[in-house]
Amino acid sequence: MSILVDRNTRVLVQGITGREGSFQTRRCIEYGTKVVAGVTPGRGGEELDGVPIFDTVREAVANTGANCSLIFVPAPFAADAILEAAYAEIPLIVCITEGIPALDMVRVRRYLRDSGIRLIGPNCPGVITPGQARVGIMPGDVFTPGMVGVISRSGTLVYEAVAQLTALGIGQSTCVGVGGDPVIGTTPLDAMRLFAQDPDTKAVVFIGEIGGTFEQEVAEFIGKGLHKPVIAFVAGATAPPGRRMGHAGAIIVGEAGTAQAKKRALAQAGAVVVDSPAQIGLTTRRVLQERGII
């Protein structure tokens, strides 16, 4: 019925006592997410709204059986926090933090490579399985349960796309914000592979952006015979080359990084490409109707 997280996911929050950490933890709990522990070094033994706080991730896991970590630790210390969670063998790590140095993430990715541990992010809104678990920072009331998977490099564009879907009565199986950095734990292709195997995801909305070649990777996978419709939008058609558009990964270096090249690759592979971000919902409905899915 979903990928990555569901109502049984036991979430640990690293950086739970920080301003955003505590605000977002409360929102996760309100949404129904099972938040079982928090970690803030030096504040073990305290509680946040009944959630026990530990000094270290290892202790938190031993005491609560947490199997997913949600990280709000500031950028200079975030790579260390991810590695602490990985060392404690937490199988799913979601890192929200923005602004982590790219080479820190290179080392993290290298360590995670053969570990079987999955990292979502960093610089992402997290993962939500509507009606079950919100492991991140999304505005929960925009989402509704259903059968469309959503993958996005941008956080706020997930909300934008999902709001359009929900307004048309189209629900979502799971929405994954993979993050806007050049080096991320789970790429759009990885997320697409998970949706391909999920029997309850009938179609996927993929929101890419300029920079890198993640979109081309997804296109290649679709072209090899993904039997689910993909509706794609690529942000940044109007961005000038060589300038970083906010996200560290959103910078056009060479032809492959342009929105035009990415859209072309996706369209050629069989995805339905949307030019206007305001048309994502309507286009998805049309595709679902044409394929007899709704």
Binding site: S152, G155, L157, I210, F233, A235, G236, H247
Partner: peptide, 11 residues
């Protein structure tokens, strides 16, 4: 958000 900012420019 950077993505929504780019999408807004596109729109």
């Amino acid at each position: 958000g950077a993505g929504l900012a780019m999408a807004t420019m596109d729109a």
